[in-house]
Design a binder for these strands. Sequence first.
DNA 1: CCGACTACTGTAAACGTTTACAGACTTACA
DNA 2: TGTAAGTCTGTAAACGTTTACAGTAGTCGG
Lengths: 350, 350
Amino acid sequence: MVQSSSSRHIITIRDVARIAKVSVATVSRVINNSGPVSGATRLRIERVAAKLRYSPNGAARSLITSKTSTLGVLLPDLYGEFFSEVIRGIDQRAQRHGYHVIVSSSHNDRREVEIALGAMRGRVDGLIVMSPDVDPSALEANFLPSLPVVLLNCAVKGDAFDTLNIDNAAGAQAMTNHLIGLGHARIAFIQGAARNHDADERLKGYRAALKGARLERHEQWEPRGDFTESGGYRAAMGLLKRRPRPTAIFAANDSMAIGALSALHDGGVVVPDEMAMAGFDDIPIARYTSPPLSSVHVPINRLGEWATDKVLHAISHKNEHRRKQELLATTLVIRQSCGGSDAKVPSRAR
Amino acid sequence: MVQSSSSRHIITIRDVARIAKVSVATVSRVINNSGPVSGATRLRIERVAAKLRYSPNGAARSLITSKTSTLGVLLPDLYGEFFSEVIRGIDQRAQRHGYHVIVSSSHNDRREVEIALGAMRGRVDGLIVMSPDVDPSALEANFLPSLPVVLLNCAVKGDAFDTLNIDNAAGAQAMTNHLIGLGHARIAFIQGAARNHDADERLKGYRAALKGARLERHEQWEPRGDFTESGGYRAAMGLLKRRPRPTAIFAANDSMAIGALSALHDGGVVVPDEMAMAGFDDIPIARYTSPPLSSVHVPINRLGEWATDKVLHAISHKNEHRRKQELLATTLVIRQSCGGSDAKVPSRAR
DNA sequence: CCGACTACTGTAAACGTTTACAGACTTACA
DNA sequence: TGTAAGTCTGTAAACGTTTACAGTAGTCGG
């Protein structure tokens, strides 16, 4: 009688081989569709494997093939819709190619990144790192040359890595120009988190636009935020007290813009009539705020998809491919929060 | 001369042993802090390991110890703030205990779940499954008895699994009662996705409250939604055409409530004066809508933390512990979107 | 000086796969 | 019939760890 899977013992390829009366090699060939196996034996082995509910041990496989079929994703923090969308893009793409995804979050300082990197070493075939906060030099020293790495939104110069960056400066500049075009001369900018690459670039774009239009810029119109709703709320509250008061507020991301909208609402300031408002990222919820939020659209999930494609490409080329540094273009999505002509730029369908 | 790590060859424990002139066993003891090693040897080995940038091969470790130090997370879909928060909770807790997290998303039907389950087999020490949409029987047949599993928001009966559920019915009932207490007699309910456990329970709670107050219920006031903003928008637009028109709308989650708020805004309906609005989940953004959204607060990240603790507990007890079924209490967070007394129930600090 | 104990280190057998190699049998063809 | 090629299958050596076991010193109490 065949021993059923109710046994405590874990089913290995050897069990299948023994019961199907073949060698482990043949079972392996059936499981992996490698090498020739006669129809009858194949069928018998498949039956036995199914009956025993055999499934191969991933660790043993990884050990011998030195492939883990796993991608690592290192994120600064798992918070809000932005990261959720990025991971979604990564996961979908990875799954389609038979890869698993290990996520590791909340790495905002150098030491944490190093620890996380060490822990992933050997467990992943490739790495996607999103770390706008970290000193780039911390990264370069920590990768094995054989491990494919794609950097997302990092301030790393040179061509040592595949990198993918949002064209933050251009996006911010375009939005600021749009506000200027609407007649605003006093435009405030709620900054992102300190020492954050995206935040810095967006600030640069804003300033460049002001300069281009020969508008003066005030430190007091550039309050520091932290990319959260509450940070945006506080910053906007502060801006309302400034004299002269700005007529438009551009937040470095949508979460802060939403917080700012809330502050304006609480302060009795009507948007867009008394104050124009704009954000950055165009997270899905942006079109559902009141009023709907004008924003710089970033193709967030394509960010994840693209990163995944790149890292898979690197893996299949044993990391000996040409590195590429790419810049992801943004588009303006004009809704009602900044007044003026609606849909001046075609907003994407959803 | 010591061969530097610039070699193409991957550094193994054997390399470290050879260069430090000890056996692999001793190196292993140093790396794992197991067994006695003299101070001098320990130091020498640590130096060599650091110099070679040695890091142990996870697969080999897993193979011999039959521990992967990895938790699997199966999600219906990675979308929006809710899942983002859950994963965040899981990841933080797992990291603290030295575990990695593999996520796998977009499993809404039975076949997909089975495939994902198969792929994770042997790669994880435990599993957290959130699958409100799936027929429970699909799950029970697919787990090895030795694999610890925690079910989140699943409609599984009995005590075969550890389960953690939100007390959806009680929460929905409480919110509905609150609206009734404010004098509303015509309360609409935007339903969640079809065949979704959470959605069903929330509907039940809503209906129970109506029944308790002897208010009539109309199918036309219970439009079907899908838990997304756009679904909420459409449902609310539909409700505005109903006659008699409801005076309050309760959405089965916050995303839909936000969509509904947007619809009301577009329809020129003032909230809360002409229409009260309430949601469910209390996602972080809820307090920043205009007006701020009353919601049924769910401790989302604690959901993830708790699930992680449970599965770790199960792992450390070799899955031979007593299963527990727990219900996570909700609290009402009353903000301005439903009018009436503000802060009737103390809303949690943020 | 002996025995027992401790502290340290090495040897070698696992863990569950994949795969190079070889053997056995069949078929094709000169 | 002999040989070459092809098809199927088995044997056994890896992969990089951990760990039981054994062995070698050194120490200490009697």
